[in-house]
Simulated scan of single mutants.
Amino acid sequence: MSFSLLLIALVIGHLLADFYWQPMSWVKDRNTRHYRASKLYWHVFVHGLTSAGILTLWEYHYGWSEWTRVVAATAIIICTHYLIDVAKSYSNKGVVAFLFDQLAHLLVLLAIAMYLTDNSDFIAHICQQLLKLNTLYVLVGYLLVLNPSSVFIRMMLEKITAGFATTGSIPAAGQSIGMLERVLMLTFILLDQFAGLGFLIAAKSVFRFGDLSASKDKQLTEYVMLGTLLSVSVTLFVGLAVNYLLIN
């Protein structure tokens, strides 16, 4: 209980300090001046103060057993946050860099929570859960509906439509939309929420109706319908197969 409480409190503190108490001017200053940015030090100070407050309250609640560990934990959070943010300032500022940045911060907080609560079984428990057969079935299902399904659908469309290609669209937009669509559909299937699946297909149809009705090209309408039906069919097949494996 103490481990979960401390971890979620540290995560809340991180979210507040990183996304609510950090103005965009601080972010721009860090990305421009890197380790020389004065606003970076203010940001790290806010993070350290927030973490110190959370750790102090947690230690006070559990009886001030070892306050030196609280000081050490706060120092670790401050130093690692500074180093991670400096490293991010030299990155390309894309989604991947953002995700790695946040993951690194969360791993530090996880390690701090494990250290202060002497909870060494958490990692072993997570690994045990990840290696369960049902977890692997679900993982394979999601992997199948992403790139492999995109390749299969593209090959089928090229074969059926003889290389027909849309013009004026964002490069790779159709593939990205299809992947997100299949992830959502597979999630609905695994949760046994087929009503959500129907809602997703209906919502997509409504959004595409204007484009298709305005288009004079019958091929475009057929192309979109084929792509949608193939995407739904592949995801239904994968989702039902995973559900069957999970039950049996």
Rank of each mutant, 00 (worst) to 15 (best):
L109D: 00
M156A: 15
L10T: 04
N147Q: 11
I247M: 08
I12M: 15
G94I: 07
V138P: 06
V44R: 07
G163C: 08
I177H: 02
L143C: 13
V151L: 12
G227Y: 00
S149D: 05
L139V: 12
S231P: 08
M24E: 14
E158L: 02
G13Q: 07
I123L: 13
T235R: 11
G48R: 09
V242W: 03
C79S: 13
L157A: 08
L107C: 14
L245H: 06
Q22E: 14
K88P: 06
V27A: 13
A202V: 10
N119F: 10
L197D: 01
T117R: 08
A9Q: 04
S2E: 13
Y223Q: 02
D85R: 10
D101C: 13
A202S: 09
I126S: 09
K39R: 14
V46D: 07
I76N: 06
F152T: 08
T135D: 07
Y20F: 15
V151I: 12
D121G: 04
A165Q: 15
S25W: 15
L40Q: 01
E158F: 11
M225T: 00
S215L: 01
G13E: 05
G163Y: 05
T50F: 02
T56A: 13
L49E: 05
L5R: 11
L109P: 02
R36L: 13
L197F: 14
N31C: 02
G94F: 02
V224Q: 05
A75E: 08
Y60A: 14
I77T: 01
